[in-house]
Design a protein around this nucleic acid. Structure first.
Lengths: 147, 147
DNA sequence: ATAAACCTTGGATGTTAGTCCAAGGTCAAG
DNA sequence: CTTGACCTTGGACTAACATCCAAGGTTTAT
């Protein structure tokens, strides 16, 4: 069992943030001490980890709330509704992955172009790097390769 | 050349948003008409596309400003500084990709578990799906597989 | 030549996601 | 038995990112 300050400290967030998440239904501590202190379990810790990770990849707290409230239950015949939500999020995740792979290629090109060798590179920006079709690079016409 | 409303419409944002990006140095239209109307070029369009895509994967406008102002210039001896920025962003992108791959696996499990077959699944949440080690699944002990 | 549909600026307002503060209760250490 | 570091609540405040509004200028279509 962790008190709010401990948990906050472990994840480098403020206690206020945890209270804020509670107020918005994202993370309710599993127990309270006799004196009313919030007590968080390992499970709560995992939920917090999930919230913070989902945030870094661009999900809003509303999105995260939706993800957390997905309950696939064999006796729940709203199952089809759940599948619609899950599949929508899955598509969103896949779009994000595709974007990030694209960014990754471009940043790699920039990194290589930058101080990449004795001659260094021609002028280049991330937009030029993104524009170059990674699947069809023609080195001699390319702005961003070393030398 | 696009006027602000056209460009806004193409990208499903408000004209106000484009003026906001301009005020914050993210997207300055390349020209103005004689009467003072903003005129955006194809290049500006690409910049806007970049801004919006970067936003969906969790970059702040400040991050995006930083990415856009990267200029790898062969005559610029601040090259090492640029490489530091680029490599930091690259790491960030790679972390995001790793998170998203993890989410993707979990959402796939949920999607499969949900209405996945005649028997459907045991109760399952995204947290349980995330927790299950995808590289070491033991179907009989797993909460979220069909039947 | 005038209405409809654009555009300009500046400033007010709204939403999301925290962050801070005040007044007071709890708890462990000395 | 008090000092210091925690915790409680409620409410005010902030920053980032827009979004709206007012007063007025421009363009195009009839």
């Amino acid at each position: 069992m962790y008190r709010i300050g401990e948990l906050a400290n472990d994840f480098k967030v403020k206690s206020d943030t945890l209270r804020f998440y509670e107020k918005h239904g994202l993370l309710t501590p599993s127990k309270r001490s006799d004196s009313g202190y919030r007590l968080y379990t390992e499970q709560d810790k995992k939920t917090l980890s999930f919230i913070l990770r989902a945030k870094t990849v661009g999900f809003s707290l509303a999105d995260i709330h939706e993800l957390l409230s997905i309950e696939v239950d064999k006796d729940n015949n709203a199952c089809a509704d759940v599948k619609i939500v899950v599949d929508a999020k899955l598509e969103e995740v896949e779009r994000k992955i595709a974007e990030l792979n694209h960014f990754q290629q471009s940043l790699k090109q920039l990194s290589d172009a930058c101080c990449g060798g004795p001659g260094s590179a021609a002028q280049c920006t991330i937009l030029e790097a993104l524009e170059s079709d990674v699947h069809n690079v023609q080195p001699e016409h390319h702005h961003c390769l070393k030398e």
